[in-house]
Structures are given as C-alpha cells and as structure tokens.
Amino acid sequence: MRIILGLTILLVLGAAFVHIASDVPFGKPAVTDMDDYFIANGQEQTGANNIVTGVLFDYRGLDTLIEATVLFTAVLGVSVMFRKLKEGEQYEND
C-alpha cells in the first residue's frame, strides 16, 4: 500500500520535474535584466571585482546576515542538545 502510494507520488512529481526540466530555459535565460544590471554596475556600486560577493554582501546583505543567523541558530541548537543537565532538571515522562 505504502509502496504503491509512494510510487504514485513519485511518478506525479517526476512528471512535474521533467516538465520543469524541459521548460526552464537552460543556457539562455529569457529575462536577465536584474543580473545584467549587477554585472554592468556591480563593480562601480560595490567596489568588488567578484560580483557574487558584491551581490552577497551589498545588494543582498540582509540575506547574508540572516543566513549567518541560521548557522548561529544551528550552533545554538546543537549546543542546547548536548548540554549538561543540571541536578534535578528532570521532568515526568508521560
């Protein structure tokens, strides 16, 4: 039952992905105005030769901050997981 259901779902999603794969323009994007703007003006506006860094830290700086925050969150999560419990910090198991 589970196998049939799973295979059906995989089939539908596979069809969708094949559709995506054959419809998305690969190698020649249809619209490129935003990125062309970055390539044309990135050096001047951000002062970086590496446009990717320019996008990462200047045009989309907030993204990068929040991404670093995600890493910070994961670190806090891991350190919370492996912390040493205090004496008597037990809860009832029900």
Binding site: L5, G6, T8, I9, V12, H19
Partner: peptide, 16 residues
C-alpha cells in the same frame, strides 16, 4: 512526509 507530498501531487494534478 508522504502526506505532504501526496497533497503536493494532488495539487499538481489539479493545478496543471
């Protein structure tokens, strides 16, 4: 996970 992607699959069928 199976439930979630099941709904995705159904919605894909409807949406397409």
């Amino acid at each position: 996970v199976l439930w979630m992607f099941g709904v995705v699959a159904i919605m894909l069928l409807i949406g397409l």
